[in-house]
Design a protein around this nucleic acid. Structure first.
Lengths: 192, 192
DNA sequence: TCTTGAAGGTTAACGACATTCACCTTGCCC
DNA sequence: GGGCAAGGTGAATGTCGTTAACCTTCAAGA
């Protein structure tokens, strides 16, 4: 008995994300998803072409939320190094709050589950400008890549429970990011 | 017709890793694996309790191979910073040579696919000693965590094709690692 | 107003998957 | 030589993603 519609794309996406955050991507099956809406499984295909398409949408949504969570740190009135540190801390906090959704974005299955290319470039641009104030314009792309690598890597290792020897991880994160930024600031190695 | 045995745990593991490296973990199914040995699927359960157990073994093997590939850089006669850089470059080369196997180690599925805790600590120890020569003993755990995060993060972003804006990635990697190490060496922020 | 057709849903079925069960066969050791 | 464990089998189960054929409800145009 269709009409009124029992489903819509956003509701499916939100429920899917909730299931992922509750138990990992392995906890998300189209069967369970359909059951949550009291609908038969194939109905979902009216809204997403495949499970991969649904996961792609979840990932795009996660990335958007991540950058939304980062933005306030850009507006702060503080020296560039402090701003970059605060961005990193917000990044880490987001990953801690949504570990499974965050991890899924960077999980390499063979299909391409990752969101759009140009979109990412657009999202990263303001942060590259921030880093440029520390590293100089010429090195800003390189320095931004390292910055993202450090932050992402730390977060991923933390989520994968690779830091099991105790110690203050908050402090370790902050000190590592500071060291990296200081290395670009006081650098004594060739610039190009 | 058993005897002589048609299978052994190592051969299964090697074939499994080959399948993963050929097409990702999605390319590995017990059916295909059994077919490769001209054996029925349930036979595999004589050697591994489950697919998860097999993947765990593959991951442990990958980690071992990774550290085997790193070791020669420790023996080099060079200042600590150069040695740490060479270790990082070997690390990145290994990930580039075995991208799918490397990625699998750090892929969070809900089951624990990661190798043993203490084993990892043992493997990392010599590299922490190397970093200690740069950061000082007191900060060596923190500095090592950041070092691993930077290297791992860079490699993961590269494998996930998140660096799509061109540029010399070899140089970006080297400069980022150098900046990080320089930051610990010439540091001007609190030590604890 | 009648008709058309798209939107939203259904059941049934397919092939692949991991896993379990009961069973058979081979060879070594006491 | 008899037991027994190791190594292998076929059959079956339940879940999965996906497709196909079909039915029903509403909205809009003739």
């Amino acid at each position: 008995m269709p009409y009124p519609s029992q489903l819509d794309a956003d509701a499916i996406l939100n429920t899917a994300r909730a299931m992922i955050e509750a138990g990992g991507v392995g906890n998300l099956s189209l069967n369970k998803l359909a059951k949550a809406f009291k609908v038969s499984t194939p109905s979902l295909y009216r809204y997403y072409d495949s499970k991969a398409a649904l996961l792609r949408a979840v990932n795009a949504d996660t990335v958007q939320r991540l950058f939304d969570a980062l933005a306030p740190a850009l507006d702060a009135d503080a020296p560039p190094t402090e701003k970059a540190l605060r961005v990193a801390m917000r990044y880490r906090a987001f990953a801690a709050a949504h570990p499974l959704a965050y991890g899924l974005v960077f999980t390499n299955t063979i299909d391409n589950l990752r969101p759009d290319d140009e979109e990412n470039v657009r999202l990263v641009r303001p942060y590259q400008q921030l880093i440029a104030q520390i590293s100089g314009e010429a090195a800003s792309l390189v320095a931004t890549r390292g910055y993202l690598a450090l932050v992402h890597g730390f977060v991923m290792l933390e989520l994968a429970q690779q830091f099991r020897r105790g110690g203050d991880l908050d402090a370790a994160f902050e000190q590592s990011v500071r060291a990296y930024l200081a290395g670009w600031h006081n650098r004594d190695f060739p610039s190009e």
